[in-house]
Amino acid sequence: MSTPAEVTAEQALGAARALLDEALRTGSRRLLGIAGAPGAGKSTLTALLADHLPERSCVVVPMDGFHLADAALARLGRLERKGAPDTFDAAGYVALLQRLRTARPRDPSVWAPTFERDLEQPLAGAIEVPAEVPLVITEGNYLLADGAFAPVRALLDARWFVETTVELRRQWLVERHERFGKSPEQARRWALGPDEDNARLVAATRARAQLVVSTS
Score class of each variant (00 low, 15 high):
T205L: 03
G92E: 07
A15P: 01
P194N: 14
L48S: 13
E55L: 13
P105M: 07
L45S: 10
L73K: 09
G77Y: 04
V60E: 11
E185V: 14
N198S: 11
G140C: 06
A131W: 04
A40H: 11
A9K: 09
L143R: 03
G83K: 10
R56P: 00
D118W: 03
F161G: 06
L156S: 04
R104W: 01
S2P: 12
A16N: 05
L96S: 08
R153V: 03
D107K: 04
G14W: 12
G65C: 12
A50I: 04
G77P: 05
E178P: 00
T102L: 12
A16Q: 08
P113C: 08
R104I: 01
G39H: 12
A9H: 01
L76Y: 08
G140M: 06
R208V: 01
D86Q: 14
Q121D: 10
L48G: 09
L76D: 11
Y142L: 05
S28C: 10
R106M: 08
S43V: 00
R30F: 09
R176F: 09
G77N: 07
S28M: 11
Q186K: 07
A204V: 10
A5G: 01
G125V: 00
P134H: 06
A124Q: 08
S109P: 13
A187G: 07
S216L: 07
R78D: 05
D107Y: 07
A150W: 02
Y142R: 02
A5W: 02
F149H: 05
R99M: 08
P54M: 09
G181N: 06
D51E: 15
P105T: 06
L73V: 09
D51R: 15
P184Q: 10
V152D: 00
L201I: 14
Q210M: 03
